[in-house]
Design a binder for these strands. Structure first.
Ligand SMILES: [Zn+2]
Ligand SMILES: [Zn+2]
Ligand SMILES: [Zn+2]
Ligand SMILES: [Zn+2]
Lengths: 138, 138
DNA sequence: TCTACAACCTCTAGTCACTAGAGCTTCAAG
DNA sequence: CTTGAAGCTCTAGTGACTAGAGGTTGTAGA
C-alpha cells in the first residue's frame, strides 16, 4: 500500500493533482487509514501511470475517463479507443498547422526590427496593427 | 461613434469579449450615452483591431497591454516590443517541438490498432499504459 | 407619439486542468 | 512520548473568455 506522497514520487504527478484526479472521478484510492489518509494499491499506481502518460500526450480528462472505462472491460470492443486516439491526432495536427503559420509570421515580425528605433516607426508594432503586413492567413 | 455591436461586427470580436477587454483594462470606450451604453471612436476601433490581430498571433493579454502602452508613446524606444515578439516566437517554437513529438507518437498509436479487436489486446490502450512503447520523449 | 423588440447593461458563474494557501490532523521515526 | 513531515479539507486563483439571468435603452415603423 502506498501513501499519496509515495504515489506522487513514483509517477511524477504532484500530490494536489492526484487529489484533483480523485475529485473528478479519474482515480479513486483503494481505501483510507483510520486517520482518513488515502492508501493506494498497485492497481492505483498503474492507473495513475496511465493517466500521466495520456495527459503527457495531450488527451483530455474526459477522454482519459473513457479510455480507463474501456480498459476496465477487457471484453468490450476497442473501437472507441482508436476513435479517441485519432481525434487526438487530428487535434494535434490542427494545432501544428496553426502554430506553423504563426511561426512564419512571427519570424518576419521579430526579425523586422532590431529594437534600436522608437516605437513610432517600429515594424513590430506596425505589423501587429495591420494584418495586411502578413504573408498569409493565421 | 460606434456602438459595441458595430465594433464587434467590424472586428469580428464578440461583444462579451469586448466588455471583457474593458474589464481587464485593455480597451476603454470613448464614453457612454445618457442611457449608459458604450460608444467608441475611430481610435477605439483601431485599438481593438490591434488587439484582435495580436491575440490571433498568440500574444497574451499582458503582452498586448505592454505593446499598446508602448504604441501610445511614439517617442519611446521599441526595444520592449521586439523582446516581446521574440519571446512569443520562442514560445511558439517550443510548442511546435512538443506537438511534433506528440504527433509522431500519436500516429504510431492511432495506426497501431484498427479498432476491430477488444480492449484487452488493444495497442492504443497498451501504448498509453506504458511509455516504453514510445519511440522518443514527449 | 407610441410601441415593439433588438441590442444594450451588470453581475454571477462556468470552462479546463490544475495550483496555492490557510488551518487543522495524523503518521512514523527517534 | 515528542516532534515535524506529510496528510487532510476547503476555498480561491489562473487565462481568456463564454453563458445566462434579469433588467434597461435605442431606434425604426405604424
Ligand atoms: Zn521596433
Ligand atoms: Zn496577420
Ligand atoms: Zn484497439
Ligand atoms: Zn510515451
Amino acid at each position: 500500500m502506498f501513501s499519496i506522497g509515495q504515489l506522487s514520487k513514483q509517477t511524477g504527478v504532484k500530490v494536489p493533482t492526484i487529489r484533483y484526479y480523485e475529485q473528478v472521478g479519474l482515480l479513486v484510492s483503494a481505501g483510507r487509514t483510520e486517520g482518513n489518509q488515502r492508501r493506494y494499491d498497485k492497481g492505483g499506481l498503474e492507473r495513475l501511470g496511465f493517466i500521466r502518460h495520456a495527459r503527457d500526450l495531450g488527451f483530455s480528462i474526459e477522454a482519459i475517463t473513457a479510455l480507463i472505462d474501456l480498459q476496465q472491460h477487457p471484453d468490450r470492443s476497442c473501437q472507441e479507443a482508436t476513435l479517441i486516439a485519432q481525434h487526438q491526432l487530428t487535434d494535434v495536427r490542427e494545432k501544428l498547422l496553426r502554430l506553423k503559420a504563426l511561426e512564419a509570421e512571427l519570424v518576419r515580425i521579430a526579425d523586422g526590427c532590431d529594437g534600436e528605433g522608437n516605437s513610432e516607426e517600429c515594424y513590430v508594432l506596425a505589423s501587429l496593427a495591420d494584418h495586411q503586413h502578413c504573408r498569409g492567413e493565421h
